[in-house]
């Protein structure tokens, strides 16, 4: 068996994954996507691999490479449709609603004027998010109409075309933390709580993580959410709503886990490597 791992930056996660494959005597070749030129008509060297695990930190590189590789018929982890769904918050919302998975209320508009109406329909405080983005970047909580008008005007004037999509989410008054569940092959393997005095509870923004037991409801919703987006390997972020209970906030198709191994006591890279190998062998769906 021969697996390729594509990347654009070799971070701790990628190094841990390489070590995990090697520990299982699985042949793994790291490939820096920045060095590759693809011919869409010729599979070339990619024919040597039974599967490709994509770990690029660049969404553009991921989408480009996985689209081409799936065009050749190469099994990619995650599949392109899962990447497209997870990386776009609106696509995620649509997939979760269609699957009946509870998620915060959202309104969507396509310009600043209707965006303000969308905010007012959600009610204050509301959360404005770019549909594509990670690590809590450019996520804004607006507490009143003045703040909403300011953020919308800045987005319209300074933002990229993508930020023309006004995605407004209801603010969930969570208990100072959110929950992340790591799912590998439809199995929730570990969970952490991310706590912060700031309303953005993202470890990239300074939140601290602690291990969390996966209860029956968290387990069921994690399995349902992963299935809703068609992901093989995914990290799912939950908010605890005082009224509605657990809500799926977003899903991450290229999960970071370096700080969750010791926290949870779970060998996350080892489980990921084993599942990728099973998919490559065709013994896992």
């Amino acid at each position: 068996m021969h697996i390729a791992m594509t990347y654009t930056r070799l971070r701790a996660e990628e190094r841990l994954l390489l070590d995990a494959f090697e520990a299982m005597d699985i042949r793994i070749t790291p490939i820096d996507l920045r060095t590759i030129v693809f011919d869409p008509a010729e599979i070339g060297e990619w024919a040597a691999y039974d599967a490709v695990l994509d770990r690029s930190v660049s969404l553009t590189a991921t989408r480009t490479a996985v689209a081409l590789l799936e065009g050749y018929g190469v099994r990619c982890i995650n599949p392109l449709h899962a990447i497209e769904t997870c990386s776009d918050k609106l696509a995620t919302t649509i997939a979760l609603i269609r699957a009946g998975v509870p998620t915060p209320g959202v309104r969507v508009a396509t310009n600043a004027e209707s965006g303000l109406t969308a905010v007012e329909r959600i009610g204050y405080p509301a959360v404005l998010k770019p549909t594509v983005g990670s690590w809590g970047r450019l996520v804004a909580r607006v507490n009143d109409r003045d703040a909403a008008e300011a953020v919308l005007e800045h987005r319209e004037t300074l933002g990229s075309v993508q930020q023309g999509v006004i995605y407004v989410q209801e603010h969930i008054d969570k208990p100072g933390r959110d929950i992340r569940v790591f799912v590998v092959g439809a199995e929730p393997i570990a969970a952490i709580a991310r706590s912060s005095p700031h309303w953005v509870t993202n470890t990239a923004r300074g939140a601290t993580a602690s291990g969390l037991e996966i209860g029956p409801e968290l387990r069921r919703l994690s399995i349902d959410a992963a299935a809703a987006v068609g992901a093989d390997i995914v990290a799912i972020d939950f908010l605890e709503c005082p009224r509605r209970g657990l809500l799926v906030n977003e899903l991450n198709h290229s999960m970071e886990f370096r700080n969750s191994i010791d926290t949870t006591g779970v060998n996350i890279p080892g489980i990921v490597a084993r599942h990728v190998a099973a998919l490559a062998e065709g013994v896992a769906a």
Partner: peptide, 11 residues
């Protein structure tokens, strides 16, 4: 020096 975080980076 590693590049700063770019717009499409994430998990």
């Amino acid at each position: 020096l590693a590049p700063e975080v770019e717009e499409d980076w994430g998990e």
